[in-house]
Simulated assay, not measured.
Amino acid sequence: MIVHVKGIAVMGPGIEHWDALRSHLLTGTPLAPDVQPRPQGSILPGTERRRASTTVKMAVDVAQAALRQSGLKAEDAAVVFASANGDTNTIHQICEALATPERMVSPTRFHNSVHNAAAGYWSIASGSMQPSSSLAAWTGTFAAALVEAAAQCIGDDIPVILAVFDTPFPEPLAACAPGHQPFALALVLDRQPENSLAALRLAVAPDTGLPASAMADPELEPLRCDSSASRSLPLLAAIAAGSTGDDLIFDYVEGLQLRVGLAG
């Protein structure tokens, strides 16, 4: 499968936006160690913005930023939202509530806890009636989401906004789940090559035992290993460099790997 990237957005520790990460990757510009994601959810109407969690706001923020860069319209694009664990703080709060004698769970927390909450908020804010998918595949979430988005883009001949996001669980669940840093990225994919930032060639292949692609950058390699969303960093680095070298390898589902190259 070959798809074209029309927009990119990223948010994470030390990474305020795509331009900051790209500058670091290309020129060594230091990352901002004190910068932590501060999602705003500015696309959301006031009522939804007050109800939305930090996880939801982070997801819609990167989706909005990537779409803005692409120049496409939300009403013309399908969406694929993906997260290994969903809205971690909300899940933690519900577990705390269920551990009390009263076992009272607020309706707002409940509706934020479902895995398609972020995609639902996006649909409300953007007014889009296009297809929406939400998925999780543990540490293979980024690869699974990229395959899903590319397949929809090619099969339905429609631009697709892909947003992958992870936030850490509070303790005690933090000890049982990957991810200790918030991280989110978004790509806008399209079949059409005009005004694209890169062309991606995707292939699902049997797991040969080769390890997933790593970051040569010592600052970013620990972050890459932290969550399912941050496993996207080698692809972002390749796009920044315009690399058309060896295919990148990403962990997918058991027995399979995803290989991604930049098409020349």
Score class of each variant (00 low, 15 high):
residue 240 A to L: 08
residue 133 S to P: 01
residue 207 D to V: 05
residue 10 V to A: 15
residue 144 A to Q: 13
residue 220 L to G: 10
residue 220 L to H: 09
residue 109 R to L: 10
residue 107 P to N: 09
residue 111 H to G: 00
residue 96 E to R: 14
residue 63 A to I: 12
residue 3 V to F: 00
residue 244 T to I: 10
residue 1 M to A: 09
residue 24 H to G: 04
residue 187 L to G: 00
residue 145 A to F: 01
residue 170 P to E: 05
residue 24 H to T: 07
residue 248 L to P: 12
residue 22 R to D: 11
residue 154 I to A: 12
residue 236 L to C: 09
residue 128 S to K: 14
residue 208 T to I: 03
residue 205 A to I: 10
residue 155 G to V: 01
residue 55 T to D: 07
residue 117 A to H: 12
residue 151 A to Y: 06
residue 111 H to C: 03
residue 130 Q to P: 04
residue 175 A to Y: 11
residue 57 K to N: 10
residue 25 L to F: 03
residue 2 I to T: 14
residue 236 L to Y: 05
residue 67 L to H: 06
residue 251 D to I: 10
residue 55 T to P: 03
residue 137 A to T: 04
residue 174 A to W: 03
residue 21 L to S: 09
residue 134 S to E: 08
residue 12 G to T: 02
residue 87 D to W: 00
residue 110 F to W: 13
residue 218 P to K: 05
residue 183 F to C: 07
residue 108 T to S: 15
residue 102 E to S: 11
residue 191 R to F: 06
residue 168 P to R: 11
residue 148 E to N: 07
residue 92 H to Y: 09
residue 56 V to C: 13
residue 193 P to H: 02
residue 129 M to T: 13
residue 39 P to N: 06
residue 251 D to G: 14
residue 163 A to R: 02
residue 204 V to K: 11
residue 80 V to D: 04
residue 86 G to Y: 00
residue 189 L to W: 08
residue 124 I to D: 03
residue 167 T to Y: 00
residue 258 L to A: 11
residue 37 P to D: 04
residue 62 V to P: 03
residue 125 A to E: 10
residue 256 L to G: 00
residue 6 K to C: 03
residue 218 P to H: 02
residue 182 P to T: 04
residue 127 G to P: 08
residue 8 I to H: 11
residue 20 A to E: 12
residue 58 M to T: 04
residue 262 L to M: 11
residue 255 G to N: 01
residue 224 R to D: 09
residue 181 Q to V: 05
residue 244 T to N: 10
residue 176 C to H: 11
residue 63 A to H: 11
residue 134 S to N: 11
residue 41 G to I: 07
residue 23 S to C: 13
residue 217 D to H: 05
residue 261 G to S: 07
residue 83 S to V: 02
residue 10 V to G: 12
residue 80 V to K: 06
residue 68 R to K: 13
residue 84 A to M: 05
residue 88 T to A: 15
residue 232 S to E: 04
residue 211 P to E: 10
residue 250 F to K: 09
residue 130 Q to R: 15
residue 14 G to T: 12
residue 94 I to W: 14
residue 184 A to Y: 05
residue 171 E to C: 02
residue 181 Q to L: 09
residue 256 L to V: 01
residue 104 M to A: 08
residue 136 A to H: 03
residue 200 L to Y: 10
residue 49 R to T: 01
residue 58 M to N: 04
residue 147 V to E: 06
residue 103 R to F: 09
residue 36 Q to V: 14
residue 56 V to L: 15
residue 17 H to T: 02
residue 180 H to W: 03
residue 128 S to G: 11
residue 186 A to H: 13
residue 192 Q to D: 12
residue 263 A to R: 09
residue 18 W to I: 06
residue 263 A to T: 14
residue 49 R to M: 01
